[in-house]
Design a protein around this nucleic acid. Sequence first.
DNA 1: GCATTAGGCAACCAGAAGGTTGCATTTTTC
DNA 2: GAAAAATGCAACCTTCTGGTTGCCTAATGC
Lengths: 136, 136
Amino acid sequence: MPARARLRDPASVFAALGDETRLRLVSRLSSGGPASISRLTDGSGVSRQAVTKHLRVLAGAGLVRAHRRGRESLWRLQPERLDEAQRSLDLIARQWDHALSKLKAFVESPLAGGDAAPRTTQPRAGEQRRAPDRSD
Amino acid sequence: MPARARLRDPASVFAALGDETRLRLVSRLSSGGPASISRLTDGSGVSRQAVTKHLRVLAGAGLVRAHRRGRESLWRLQPERLDEAQRSLDLIARQWDHALSKLKAFVESPLAGGDAAPRTTQPRAGEQRRAPDRSD
DNA sequence: GCATTAGGCAACCAGAAGGTTGCATTTTTC
DNA sequence: GAAAAATGCAACCTTCTGGTTGCCTAATGC
């Protein structure tokens, strides 16, 4: 598998961020700027090799990138993927709001009858669009 | 309940989202509204038990919640965690920007090594002659 | 009442993940 | 040019994960 396989696969970005150690690495890179492996290993609580592996996972998700400088390799954050992940979350949240408003419209609709809550999911009977409203 | 300042456990949320199947589930819940396990299993490509497990992982991360209705259990999205995850990403991105500007200030400073020096990434003695190259 | 439908529980399995250790390689430093 | 520093590679180990299957329980629909 190529190192930069499916870069726009949101799951892989989340998976990369879904490890305590890796998240700390990302956080450290984000707040401290580019750093070498040895430096990142310091105080990480795991071995240098472990850090290396984690960095590669992050790189595989496109979250970080390294370039060699002399005998050390400097790793830096790649913020684009973060943006992508953020947009991903945003999309989900937006869809949810929309679904909720549809649901609410359905429930309150006279066509739904007072007794009938939406049977399981698909309201698609007499759904009418409504302005998105924050129900929480 | 430290719901405000420090995010509880961002890694677990990301980990939960870091699986293709689970992300699809979340997406489906977000766009289709609350749904039962059987319904979520339909077209998911995996068994009902697999879906159940995934839902529990998502619930463990606080991303979804179920409530029983008759013989079925309805699962719905829990958008707060999504917000948290988003804030998490935002924080990281912000820190990164800040780190970059500090770094830039440091590199461009005529007296490199002064108070503009990045703290967590202190250059060791005799190491500050090369600027980080952004050739990629 | 009885078949059907929706789920829960538990055992089991293969492969991925996270981690370690040992050794080789390449730059730096003195 | 030899020691030290910074990594890379590879083997190995243990635990976690995603998935399955089989069987049992609880509502529902006739």
